[in-house]
Amino acid sequence: MEKIANKVRETARLALANGEVNKILGWKKGDFWYDSYPAFITEEEGTASLIWDSFCVANLSKYLIEQLKEDIKVGVFLKGCDARAFNQLLKDNRVDRDKVVIYGLPCPGMIDPEKVKKAGLAKGLLDVQKSEDEVVFITKEGEQKFSAREFAYDKCLTCQYPNPVVYDELLAEEVERNNTTEYFYQDVEEIEKMSPDERFAYWVEQFSKCIRCNACRNVCPACSCEKCIFDNSKANVAGKAKVDSEEQFFHIVRAYHVAGRCVDCGECSRVCPVGIPLAKLNRKIIKDITEFYGEHNAGVNPSLDAPLETFKLEDIDPFETRAKGGK
């Protein structure tokens, strides 16, 4: 990845130097091995701090909404999932394609610091390097090698679009198109196998962990409303009480609002500070949409009509097709 990182820095430097863009959105390294964080760079010298490593998980495309309020041209580095998010923002009329230069980064999958920590490897860790399918943990005492898959984010294990679906320049060779080994709908099917009561109990318990921090919403590229109903006290539909009903209401409304627009980036699950498997809910909806209307992968091709935004006479009636009953 370091070779590509050099290319990232050079590309950014040139783009600012020749005035192709006014600002670069990339990632920088902070205090810790896992601390790769969004960087907003306007000066050529600043590009030297840009990085590309296995912790550049933050999706930079949603920042474009705010950044493009200024009349500037922005260069942005996007991974596979980030590029789908960009396309969805484009489809939702939240960004202007002409004001963005996309540098595509084929993504080998990101490493989940929590998995590293759980494996007891975080202590004294100085750096983590990834090459091909291997990950090397470097401490003062020496190096340890592992299979990278062991430490990949769950969402990366089932990723179907590691390569950017939209870009102006691709900075590396595409990675293998289908690097998934886990079955895409495995977690959804586990839920589907439950009885309605079990399923209800499962989600009640999950949602009851919610602390109403809105991290899932704010990170979500499909949640881009100017003013969210949950921020509008005048709308009088949402309260901030930590009670089950409010939490369920919030998550169910959100899941339905992003239905058909969710790009399956899995960021909602990643950022949830209390570990609610939110992406599972969205993926269930993706599965249903696929079964009812044929495969639709939001953000892959923004020129295609989204199934829930169009109506055809031959569309099935989900209520007829699916058994009713249960909670």
């Binding site: 964080y37 969004p38 960087a39 907003f40 933050a58 920042y63 602390i211 109403r212 921090c213 809105n214 991290a215 919403r217 704010n218 990170v219 309260g239 901030k240 009480a241 950022v271 500070p273």
Partner: peptide, 28 residues
């Protein structure tokens, strides 16, 4: 200006923080 650019505006930091103590009052 520089530091706040990446902030998503969520309240994760606030709610997990041991010292944050601001509150709202609402009627139900």
């Amino acid at each position: 200006d520089e530091l706040s650019q990446s902030c998503l505006g969520c309240g994760a930091c606030t709610y997990i923080c041991p010292t944050c103590h601001c509150y709202d009052i609402q009627d139900f």
